[in-house]
Design a binder for these strands. Structure first.
Length: 848
RNA sequence: GGGCGUGUAGCUCAGUUGGUCAGAGCACUCGGCUUACAACCGAGCGGUCGGAGGUUCGAGUCCUCUCGCGCCCA
């Protein structure tokens, strides 16, 4: 026990001790009922770790430590999400390279010595992936060291990365099973498309952003030579127009339904259709349908069975060849002016052409409206018809949707209201889950296609590998029955060029971490898991996708509880995010206040509730940690360091009262933390502890020094019993401080000790109730107040104190302790007064 | 526009089924070097619980409307 307890260096010391002792190791001999398993969120290692991570991961660690002390074998793995676009972007910027799949592999490649992100060196796909692998390993080391310093009680023998062999095999295996059962399918269909990254994106990755635009009024021509006018924000898609549409009840257009009109500039004959989604109040009430301007166009195109005239290519530019129907010489001339242009330029040129032809009525009228973006993208999404892989998710199938809604209802949500967000999302789905991405650093689809004699792929007859061969890379491995020489040759094969969306892998995190189809014994002990902790922003993605995969593969939920953390707001209550530039990195705070202080702040934020970054709370946490060390040192120096005090020695009513109050605290805290209310648990423990220090320790100080009396032994024993429980109660919240203080008088870690039992404390308290302590503390407070108002030292002697009232008996039981703590010469009790409790203090004459 | 959450002391937040629930900490003021802790201790100041109605013997608490803020969806 040090002379001067301190938090300095406490993290480094205990991180090493815990690592060597293996106190956080999962005991895989435990059977499922004795296991508590956690589906830890794999952080995106290519991003920086910020204080929000520390916040939510601390919540999970509190639960893990509590369950461990409660006797569970805790399965607490850590994953790294390194698969996907964020890593590609980081590698591009870090090394100054970009992936060009057409370039052959260069085994001797060295990244540029002076990377220039603006002049990226094109490299082969394999070289690019090698760089991704190198950099993610480095990033993961940084994350791990911060997690250890924060005190996460992760079992570091159980880690995974979403791009490692096990993850790729699991993602491919699950996909093949989805495919075999008909839950995964390929389709060529209009797809939301990011033109910058040149990849398809899923509904869950969309976000609306307000963008300036303009309404353009265009004249279409009726057969009789008169005009019908429509309004559009996308005149550049005029060549892609396939119909006009108005609401079936709209009186203005009844005579046009079934007729055709000619488009401006291109003179294409298009039908006029009726559809309920046309809004009569918007513009002229009649709109042009293009293939494709937005998702409503897709709905119309599908339901009205319209022609297809695509004009936007994968690169976001107008394609070279005009679509079918743009046949006349003037039409081709107009189209040629647009071909190859970006959407932006094509719009300007179209407006010029329309103005020249007189088919633009009036001037464009500027507006602001929401436009769909890929959440990581910088340009508006286009809709391009492409061949993609999908997994059913209820978006086009009400039976599946109902099942998934039902799964959401089976889950124990903390807080409860988060379930609504899940349900709203599932019920609002309008398409299946698009999982293929035209990118590089991801899990490849384990699929090849035979090539016909004409060299074209037979998409209807995909070749799949045996599960035992996984993971496979169809881009470098040949399917069974073929040789590598047959790649790309007529009669040979070709590998599917796409990779899976990151969520298609991370949605299998319980299976990956739990050893699904790799370690059946482990999997049986941990799955379905107990807890999924995560942020509220990814309910629609990670949480939902994980439910979908488990529902199809296992017919069950992947976990029984979901703990949803809130946001971290900056001190001005703005959401912390990279784009706002108000992100705070944790290392500086961890160093300034100590890890336990940061954990204290995090623990004071409830699940699902946004919490402000509050250094004041960190200071409070630091103060609490230091106080625990000092109080422990004092109690142990007075009481001796006996780890197994004899509860029968607690004979004094005040001591029994304190233990009874502690038993209540344990009961409350246990119930709260078991119900994922760590905030309440901490508050209870903390409140007891401060009262313990301010009142009880002061009251028994003198008595505890009495070496040979039963009264002294009672105090010393009670101190040790309370201290032991307090160290254990604080252990989940302040693991460094708790283990430090615990180590002064115990072998082994507090984190391997049993969670305190209220029953044992009640047994020690015997007939005692908390009232004696409460009444005693009240008298002491009155004495202190009198001294304070007289501007006296707390050590000043008091001549006389009279305690009056009906309820003096409780306080009278600790009369000697009150007199000693208050330095009261004469302490009298008078039961004649009707008040509950009333204290009269007579100060020493010198002070009057 | 729809959904969810949230407004309590200058700040950060507790306030379980309506009945000592108007609280805690920080900040501030005053006092105290007290043998665990001055990085400490003691005391004090401070709010018509966002607003307006309603139910009730009684409303931060329940209902309705309304205002502010945050997030999600359209």
């Amino acid at each position: 026990m040090p002379d001067k307890p301190s938090l300095d260096g406490i993290e480094a010391k205990w991180v090493d001790v815990w690592d060597e002792s293996g106190v956080y190791h999962f005991d895989r001999t435990a059977s499922r009922p004795d296991v508590y398993s956690i589906d830890t969120p794999p952080p995106t290692v290519s991003g920086s770790l910020h204080i929000g991570h520390v916040f939510s991961y601390t919540h999970t660690d509190i639960v893990a430590r509590f369950q461990r002390m409660r006797g569970k074998s805790v399965f607490y793995p850590m994953g790294w999400d390194d698969n996907g676009l964020p890593t590609e972007r980081r590698v591009q910027n870090y090394y100054g390279v970009r992936c060009d799949p057409s370039i052959p592999y260069d085994p001797a490649f060295e990244p540029p010595a002076k990377p220039d992100p603006k002049r990226q060196v094109p490299i082969s796909r394999r070289n690019f992936i090698e760089l991704c692998d190198i950099l993610t390993v480095e990033d993961e080391k940084v994350f791990e060291s911060i997690w250890r310093r924060l005190g996460l009680s992760v079992d570091w023998r159980h880690t995974y990365a979403t791009i490692d062999d096990n993850s790729r095999a699991a993602a491919q295996r699950s996909f093949l099973r989805n495919l075999a059962r008909g839950e995964a399918y390929m389709a060529e269909a209009p797809t939301l498309w990011d033109v910058t990254y040149r990849t398809a994106v899923a509904q869950a990755e969309l976000e609306d952003r307000e963008r300036p635009s303009a309404y353009h009024t265009l004249a279409f021509h009726r057969p009789d030579g008169s005009d019908v006018t429509i309004e559009t924000t996308r005149p550049e898609l005029l060549a892609a127009c396939v119909a006009l549409v108005a609401h079936p009840d709209d009186e203005r257009y009844q005579d046009l339904f079934g007729a055709t009109v000619r488009t401006p500039l291109f003179g294409v004959e298009v039908p006029v259709k009726a559809h309920r989604l046309a809004d009569p109040d918007k513009g002229s009430g009649i709109a042009m349908i293009c293939t494709f301007g937005d998702t409503t166009d897709v709905t119309w195109w599908r339901e009205l069975q319209l022609a297809t005239r695509p004009v936007i290519g994968w690169d976001g530019r107008i394609v070279a060849e005009p679509p079918a129907g743009v046949d006349s010489a003037p039409a081709k001339e107009a189209y040629a002016a647009l071909a190859g242009a970006t959407v932006h330029t094509a719009r300007e040129r179209t407006v010029e052409l329309l103005r020249a032809s007189g088919e633009l009525l009036g001037e464009p009228r500027p507006i602001t409206h929401p436009v769909k973006f890929y959440e990581r993208g910088e340009k508006p999404l286009e809709i391009v018809t492409t061949r993609q892989w999908y997994i059913r998710n209820g978006g086009r199938d009400t039976a599946v949707r109902d099942e998934l809604v039902q799964r959401g209802r089976e889950l124990n949500w903390r807080p409860k209201h988060m379930q609504v967000r899940y349900e709203n999302w599932v019920e609002g789905l309008n398409s299946d889950w698009l999982i293929s991405r035209q990118r590089f650093f991801g899990v490849p689809f384990p699929v090849w296609y035979p090539l016909g004699a004409d060299g074209n792929p037979r998409y209807d007859a995909p070749i799949v590998p045996e599960e035992s061969a996984l993971p496979v890379d169809p881009g470098s491995e040949a399917p069974a029955g073929y040789t590598e020489e047959q790649r790309g040759a007529p009669g040979g094969f070709t590998g599917d060029p796409d990779v899976m969306d990151t969520w298609a892998t991370s949605s299998l995190s319980p299976q990956i971490a739990g050893g699904w189809e790799r370690d059946d014994d482990l999997f049986a002990r941990v799955f379905p898991m107990d807890l999924r902790p995560q942020g509220q922003d990814i309910i629609r993605t990670w949480l939902f996708a994980t439910v979908v995969r488990s529902h199809f593969e296992h017919g069950s939920l992947p976990w029984s509880n979901a703990a949803i953390s809130g946001w971290i707001l900056d001190p001005d209550r703005k959401k912390m995010s990279k784009s706002k530039g108000n992100v705070v990195t944790p290392l500086d705070l961890l160093e300034r206040y100590s890890s336990d202080a940061i954990r204290y702040w995090a623990a004071s934020g409830r699940l699902g509730t946004d919490t402000a970054l509050d250094e004041g709370q960190m200071k409070v946490g630091r103060r609490l940690a230091i106080k625990i060390l000092n109080a422990s040192k004092f109690a142990l120096s007075v009481a001796g360091e006996h780890t197994g005090p004899d509860a029968a020695a607690v004979t004094e009513p005040l001591d029994r009262a304190m233990l009874a109050a502690l038993a209540d605290t344990v009961e409350d805290a246990t119930a709260a933390i078991a119900d994922y209310d760590h905030t309440r648990a901490l508050e209870r423990v903390e409140r007891f502890f401060w009262n313990f220090c301010d009142d009880y320790l002061e009251l028994v100080k003198a008595r505890a020094y009495e070496a040979d009396s039963a009264r002294g032994a009672s105090a010393r024993t009670a101190l040790l019993i309370a201290l032991s429980a307090l160290h254990r109660l604080f252990a989940p919240f302040l693991p460094f401080t708790a283990d430090e203080a615990w180590s002064w008088w115990h072998e082994g870690s507090v984190h391997g000790a049993a969670w305190p039992a209220a029953d044992e404390l009640r047994t020690a308290a015997q007939d005692g109730g908390p009232a004696v302590l409460a009444a005693t503390a009240e008298v002491l407070r009155a004495v202190r107040k009198a001294k304070s108002e007289a501007k006296l030292s707390m050590r000043a002697d008091i001549e006389r104190v009279v305690v009056r009232g009906k309820h003096i008996d409780d306080a009278r039981l600790a009369a000697d302790d009150i007199a000693a703590a208050g330095r009261v010469a004469r302490l009298d009790f008078d039961a004649s007064d009707d008040a509950d409790l009333h204290v009269e203090v007579t100060l020493p004459a010198a002070a009057e």
